[in-house]
Each structure stands twice: as C-alpha cells, then as structure tokens.
C-alpha cells in the first residue's frame, strides 16, 4: 500500500507542477505589456514600476516562474491589486463558503442520484428506468444558471418563500444560512445528481448480474433486501470514487451558481477578479482548484486501492 501511495504521489506532483506552469503561462496571453495589463485601470508609472519590480517582469520567463512557484510553495499567491490584500488571505476567507455550498450540493446529488440510479437498475427497461434516465438527461442539459434564475423567479419573486440572494454566515444564524443556501445547493447538486444516477445505475447493473446476488435470490432473500443489503454496498465503491471526481465539476458549477445567487464564495471571487482584471487572484483561485482536484483524485485512487487490493498493482 505504501509503495502504491509513493507511485501515485510520484505521478501527482509532476502533474501539479505542470498545471502550475500552465496557469502561470496564462499571463503571457495578456495583450500588450504585462505590467500595464496587470495594473488594470491604473496608469500611474510608479505603480507600474512597482508591479514590474514585484513580479520580476524584466527577468526571463523561467526565472519569473521560479519566483512565483517559490512564493506559491510558501503560501504566497501574490497580492490582489484591486483589493490590496494577499490573494491567499482572500482564498482562505472565501473557501469555507464554497465548501459549505459544495458539501450541501453533494448531499443533494447523492440524495437524488443514488436512489434514482438504484431504482432504474432494478427496474431496468421498465417505465421507472425510462423516467429516471429522462430526469438525468434533463439534469445534464439544463444550464444551472438558468435553473437558478427560474427558481428565484418562482420561490423569491412569485412566492416570496426564499431569499434571492444575501448570504448569512452559519455562525450568525443557522436557519438564515440554510434558507439562503437551499436554492444554490439544489441548483449545483442537480447536474451532479444526474451523473451520480448514471454511475449508480451502471454499478448496480454490474453487481446485480453477479453470481452471489443470484445465490441470494435463489435462497429466497426478499428483493428489497437483496438490493439494499447485498448489492448496494458493493456498488457503493465505484459510486464513491467516481463521486469524488465530480468535485471538479462542482467547483466549475459553483462559479456560476454563486454568481446567480450572489454567494460570496470562491467562484464569485474568481468572477469579480476577472472583471477587475485582478489576474493574480484569478491565478490563485485556479491553482487552488487544480491542487484540490489533484488531491481528491489521489484520495479516490487510494480509497479504491484500499478496498480492492487488485488495483494496487496497477
């Protein structure tokens, strides 16, 4: 297991380094002089000179990357020019909000996707399967920002049941926090629910066709018990590992969901930074996302290997 971990880490670290290079190189896409572009609206030559100095813009690209990467390793993601704050501080401030949203969304996705997947696998080819597949297709095709707008239209504008925006910290008021988060969590979880449903259906179909399930059926175990006690635990492994990989999708979706509902999280930070031409913040958010995604990938691999020793040789 330790050797497996070492091998996986040996793959993950170069991946992260290469990803950081790509993210750093994004700067080169800026039209015109980088220092002028980085300062945004500011035309003060002193500020431009300061930026040129701070980001070592007179040095060749590899040297600049080394300075930047060195900073990233020490937890220094640069300064937000717009907000006059270290990027790392901004991220630490916003991350819990997005994590709460992501966890709630995952809960929604599991609560909808897994039962629907189990049902459609058990009732394969029947009406319930067709309906579940239809719902999944709907979940995959509806743009989540539009779904958000429709929900606001219904529950905030028409019915007045839920606030359209206005995030409240759970430490201030748990109920207000949940009231503000229920729509964003549903919108974000909706698309993932469709993916989870498809994973669950495929995993359940695989397990339901296996010999031990047939044996259990032959012994006269009730269909419900066969499904829930015999089949589902074994199908859970691929569901959990594939679910972990959906986290990247969750972060992508959070960008738009937070924008629609004005949730002050990671995604809103990125979009605001894009508009303010606050490129250090954009890069900081992207590298944190990539690092999170690589770590989750690694965790999913380790989890699969812990459960299934055969995979450790792969």
């Amino acid at each position: 297991m330790l050797r497996f971990l070492a091998r996986r880490l040996a793959l993950a670290i170069p991946t992260l380094i290469l990803a950081s290079m790509i993210i750093f190189a994004l700067q080169q896409l800026l039209p015109g002089d980088v220092a002028t572009a980085l300062t945004g609206e500011e035309r003060d030559p002193q500020v431009i000179a300061f930026i040129r100095e701070k980001y070592h813009l007179d040095e060749p690209l590899p040297v600049r990357y080394a300075y930047w990467a060195g900073g990233v390793l020490r937890g220094d993601l640069g300064e937000s020019i717009r907000l006059q704050k270290p990027v790392s501080e901004l991220i630490v401030e916003k991350l819990p909000v997005t994590l709460e949203l992501a966890c709630l969304a995952m809960l929604v996705a599991l609560a909808i996707g897994v039962p629907m997947g189990v049902l459609s696998a058990v009732k394969r080819g029947q009406a319930a399967d067709t309906i579940a597949n239809g719902i999944a297709l709907w979940g995959l095709s509806v743009p989540n920002f539009w779904l958000g707008i429709l929900l606001i239209l219904l529950f905030s504008v028409e019915l007045g049941w839920l606030p359209a925006s206005g995030y409240v910290s759970p430490f201030e008021s748990m109920s207000d926090n949940l009231a503000a988060m229920v729509m964003p969590a549903f919108v974000l979880g909706n698309a993932i629910a469709a993916v989870m449903m498809r994973h669950t259906r495929a995993a359940m179909l695989g397990v339901l066709g296996s010999d031990y399930v047939r044996t259990a059926r032959a012994k006269g175990v009730s269909p419900l018990r066969v499904t829930l006690r015999h089949a589902l635990p074994n199908a859970a492994i691929p569901i959990i590992t594939l679910g972990a990989l959906e986290f990247g999708q969750l972060l992508s979706g959070a960008v738009l969901t937070e924008q629609v509902f004005s949730v002050p999280g990671f995604g809103k930070l990125m979009v605001d930074a894009v508009f303010n031409r606050d490129f250090a913040t954009v890069q900081g958010v992207v590298i944190c996302t990539a690092a999170t995604y690589i770590a989750l990938n690694l965790a999913a691999d380790l989890l699969s290997a812990a459960v299934n020793p055969k995979l450790r040789r792969a």
């Binding site: 793959l11 991946t15 992260l16 290469l18 990803a19 290079m21 790509i22 993210i23 994004l26 896409l29 990247g248 999708q249 972060l251 992508s252 979706g253 960008v255 738009l256 990125m270 979009v271 894009v274 954009v282 890069q283 958010v285 992207v286 996302t289 990539a290 995604y293 690589i294 990938n297």
Partner: peptide
C-alpha cells in the same frame, strides 16, 4: 493530466 486537473469551465473562464 495537468490540463485535466483544472476543471473545464474554470480553465475556460481563466483563458
């Protein structure tokens, strides 16, 4: 692998 580590939409927005 490195490109896939950055979620699709986040990479598109950054680009």
């Amino acid at each position: 692998d490195a490109l896939l580590a950055i979620p699709f939409l986040i990479l598109a927005i950054a680009l």
